[in-house]
Write a protein that binds this DNA or RNA. Structure first.
Length: 302
RNA sequence: GGGGGAAUACCAAAGCGGCCAACUGGGACAGACUGUAAAUCUGUUGUCUUAUGACUUCAUAGGUUCGAAUCCUAUUUCCCCCA
């Protein structure tokens, strides 16, 4: 391992745990650059609700994939995986250390492991599936799946519309079952990878989430959401922190309830992130403080 | 002081003799996840490491009954009305 001098430090963990601060400290300490692995901070139209690094933070270390795209573009984990990996290769030409930091588990996986190659499917197929689902419900998807790809239907999560639609679009678009593309091959990398998971006692994490949400609201989260209201159906806006406010604006409930849901849904999101990252046995877990502990561990590996 | 009503698991709230360890909602906890991932979906939530099992629960104490969260009596607490 020590033969290779390039190091990718992965910083993962639940929302509000303090990833940004740690990644900046690492970037400064190792003179590295930060590659954000956050599926929503990518969008320049989204600011307050995504808890982006602030100006001072952005200025203190080079950041990538923050404000890099518009909510009007189509973007997804697979594309990110390719783009980020290309960038990593390019940046390693002038850096020995890079920090891949974010809470989007699938995005990190897309970079580190990659996805199996599945041919592009025309958008029109997905659009038809989405329309069919919205008009006829999940039963319609299940029946379609049962007739088109019965073998995989047995394996799949039958109650999950997203999974059904993805499996169907691949089957319809390529003629082959999505299962036939699954090779489960992982990427090989010519750089070292160090995975750092950040966590805090649950109670403390919840307090931080609540406090940060109050801060976002004070900074104008409701106003930001109001401006984005016309785009509320865009994929980029299917996001904790915005959907709750859109529903409030549509009169589904009052402001108090909206705030309650904002906090609750952020907590649940944090739990999902934790569930995802905890499964990764290579992840080494730390409290964000003291930072020295993290450095000490890294020193033993580089 | 007199009259009426209510006490159910973390919270709210159903159940009003057996199908009740107890509907439902909230909250919490746990999990899945290879192209929407801050998305989408699943499970658990009285105790017992597992259970088509055992044990202890529906304010407390007694009672009626083959059988009670459900009926009766007393006690305690809370709410409402009259004084």
């Amino acid at each position: 391992m020590t033969a290779i001098k390039k190091h990718l430090i992965v910083v993962a963990g639940p929302t509000a745990v303090g990833k940004t601060a740690v990644s900046i400290k690492l970037a400064k300490h190792f003179s590295g650059e930060i590659i954000s692995a956050d599926s929503r901070q990518i969008f320049r139209e989204l600011n307050i609700g995504t808890a982006k690094p602030d100006e001072a933070e952005l200025a203190s270390a080079p950041h990538h994939f923050v404000d890099s795209h518009s909510i009007h573009e189509e973007y997804d984990a697979a594309r990110y995986g390719q783009d980020a990996l290309e960038l990593i290769h390019r940046l390693f030409e002038r850096n020995d250390f890079l920090i891949l930091c974010g809470g989007s588990g699938l995005y990190i996986k897309a970079v580190l492991e990659g996805f199996d190659d599945i041919p592009e499917v025309p958008d029109s197929i997905r659009e038809e599936l989405v329309e069919g689902f919205e008009a006829n419900g999940i039963g319609w998807l299940q029946e379609k799946m049962m007739t088109l790809d019965p073998d995989h239907f047995q394996e799949i999560d039958k109650l999950n519309p997203h999974r059904l639609m993805r499996a169907l679009e691949v089957k319809i678009g390529t003629g082959s079952s999505i299962a036939s593309f699954r090779k489960k091959q992982k990427r090989e990398h010519d750089f070292n990878i160090h995975k750092i998971g950040l966590e805090l006692p649950r109670e403390e994490l919840h307090e931080r989430i609540d406090a940060r949400m109050d801060k976002m609201i004070a900074e104008g989260l409701f106003e930001e959401a109001q401006q984005l209201f016309p785009f509320r159906n865009h994929n980029a806006l299917q996001t904790v922190g915005y959907q709750e406010i859109f529903d409030f604006m549509e009169g589904k409930y009052g402001r108090e309830e909206a705030i309650r849901l904002l906090k609750r849904n952020s907590r649940r999101y944090a739990k999902r992130q934790l569930t995802w990252f905890k499964r990764d046995e290579e992840m080494k877990w730390f409290s964000p403080e003291p930072f020295q502990q993290i450095l000490d561990w890294l020193q033993t590996r580089i």
